[in-house]
Design a protein around this nucleic acid. Structure first.
Lengths: 150, 150
DNA sequence: GTAGGTGCAAAATTTTTGCATGTTA
DNA sequence: TAACATGCAAAAATTTTGCACCTAC
């Protein structure tokens, strides 16, 4: 997502440009931490203390629908949002829940047609699970750190 | 998951073999529909009308921990369970929510080491999104059928 | 001025948990 | 019989929604 593109996308659909929408967009541009909705709410409130969480949820949904951000369901009950809409995979630490982008292109059509079972494939999500450098160095064996689970 | 393996896994850990656990296992073996927890509850109740949903959730968790089934979070708020624990990808219909296995192996190490950002990668989840044959034939453009969303 | 947006609080959903009771080994 | 498992109901946690008020255009 680029800020101006997102604003243009709103304009082109006749949606109003409100301070709340601008604040959510500002909170997301250039962010590579894959925040949860709650984290976006928190960040928006730094500039705009009384936004309603419902509004943030609604704006996030809009941005996904506009194709400006990606909604990632990485397997722990909370949605995460990614302003990087280019084709890439994700690395998820199964200990601390950290999420990172991996520049690893995989065209949807790597799935041979005879394996598509009649589906018209429009996209692919690739999530690598593992342990991040920090968690590897810290505790080893079991699950120590907060697993970012629900 | 094979029934006998799952029972053996329970035994080997000193867990008791209860009718409820057997019923959940029976409900899952050979199932390729990737049922939600609620669907498993429903199915178990066909043979065992008064099982508590909490028990089914607990048994599903156990089976995942035992490595007998896979918990899939395919991006619509509900967990789905897959007794096929071999390495494979999933095809998800974005119209009706149907999920199918695709025999498409992708070793975790297809991710080149210099792209791993220091992670120790232990697994990969690949989900292809698209439209299933039924939904392709039915309505085209928008979203008609029940999108199996939350 | 008006269509559309926001805030609040309550609803909805799915999953988890505490605790008393029941059951397997 | 003694540890473990279950059932129930309430709690949790996240996201959605209804409705009255407000505001960008």
């Amino acid at each position: 997502m680029r800020f101006d593109d997102a604003v243009a996308a709103y304009r082109s659909r006749g949606y109003k440009i409100t301070p709340q929408r601008l604040a959510v967009m500002r909170a997301l541009v250039g962010d590579a931490t894959h925040p949860t909705a709650a984290a976006v709410v928190e960040r928006v409130r730094r500039d705009f203390p009384f936004v309603s969480a419902a509004t943030v949820y609604r704006v996030l949904e809009e941005l996904v629908a506009l194709g400006e951000i990606l909604a990632l369901d990485l397997g722990n009950g909370r949605m995460r949002y990614d302003p990087n809409t280019s084709e890439h995979a994700h690395l998820v630490c199964e200990v601390c829940g950290r999420v990172e982008d991996v520049d690893w292109r995989l065209a949807a059509d790597v799935l041979p047609p005879d394996r598509r079972r009649g589906y018209e494939v429009s996209g692919v999500r690739v999530v690598f699970n593992g342990r991040c450098p920090v968690c590897l160095e810290g505790g080893d064996g079991g699950g120590s750190a907060s697993p970012a689970s629900r």
